[in-house]
Amino acid sequence: MRFMTLYKPGRESDAPPSPEEMAKVGRLIEEMAKAGVLLATDGLQPSAKGARVRIENGTFTVVDGPFAETKELIGGFAIIEATSKEHAIELTKRFLETMGEGESEIRLMHEAPAFSPEPERELLAAKP
């Protein structure tokens, strides 16, 4: 089962993580990778460097970061291969232990692209 975990540190600071923090996270990532469960992971830069794009009634709005509601901001993600939700929870606990604070949201992935990149082919095939 593939899960995406979204880490929300609960705060946002412009200061980059300290070398110690980086080292800790690095070790953890290495350990998870070595355990064969980590498929992909990355941290996200401050929301000031990002933007939110929305469509409503056919109209786009683009709001540049930083975003106000820091509690909900995502600091990083990981894609893990777990055998059960409990397995994913245990792995996430290890991650949070290293981080010391914050919250991770664990979501089960579909593991398959929702759409075929070749829709026209399917359409063609459907024609008599």
Binding site: E30, A33, K34, A35, G36, V37, E81, T83
Partner: peptide
């Protein structure tokens, strides 16, 4: 599941 186990062990071995 067996593929996943083998792959997991393979990744462990690679580490």
């Amino acid at each position: 599941a067996l593929c996943e186990d083998a792959l997991r062990l393979g990744r462990v071995l690679a580490g």
